[in-house]
């Protein structure tokens, strides 16, 4: 983890986000930015480790968004889990919308390839069902 700056989040981005969260007259010392930089990086590693452990138990190889949300819930980060669960739903809505737009535009472009595009549509439906299934599984009572 201490391999240098390459394995840390960029301190410029961290500093900018910190300034956004404080009143205008506030000042931030350089060492405080560095500490938050390391903490945020450790946050990613900590949650990733928990998500990876869940994947290993369920014999899956790909860490997905649900694993990340579930890991945050398990680690007591309830506010983050609630926000990320909703963020993941919105993210997937955006992806499906983009995919459907691409599919419709491609279908309009070439009529001969409509058959294969139809196959793509079927795939989209499968992903939508899978997403709904996963969201159904993870929809527990929100803890505020």
């Amino acid at each position: 983890m201490t391999n240098g700056q390459d394995n840390l989040l960029p301190i410029a981005n961290v500093g900018r986000i910190m300034k956004d969260g404080l009143p205008p007259q506030a000042k931030i010392s350089k060492r405080a930015k560095e500490t938050i930089q390391e903490c945020a990086t450790e946050f990613i590693s900590f949650v990733t480790g928990e998500a990876s452990e869940r994947c290993r138990r369920e014999r899956r190889k790909t860490v997905n968004g649900d694993d990340v949300c579930h890991a945050m819930r398990s680690l007591g980060l309830d506010h983050y889990a609630d926000a990320m669960h909703r963020y993941l739903q919105r993210y997937r809505e955006g992806e499906e919308l983009a995919a459907s737009l691409n599919s419709s535009s491609s279908a309009a472009a070439a009529a001969a390839a409509a058959g294969s595009r139809g196959g793509g549509a079927i795939q989209i439906d499968v992903r939508a069902e899978l997403s709904i299934f996963r969201s159904g599984n993870n929809q527990g009572r929100p803890n505020n």
Partner: peptide
């Protein structure tokens, strides 16, 4: 232990880290 990462996971962490930085700050 991490072998493959879905595309949505880094996007999720980008938002979560932003919240974390703001929360800590």
């Amino acid at each position: 232990d991490v072998k493959m990462i879905a595309g949505e996971a880094p996007a999720l962490f980008a938002k979560a880290c932003e919240m974390f930085i703001l929360d800590m700050t």
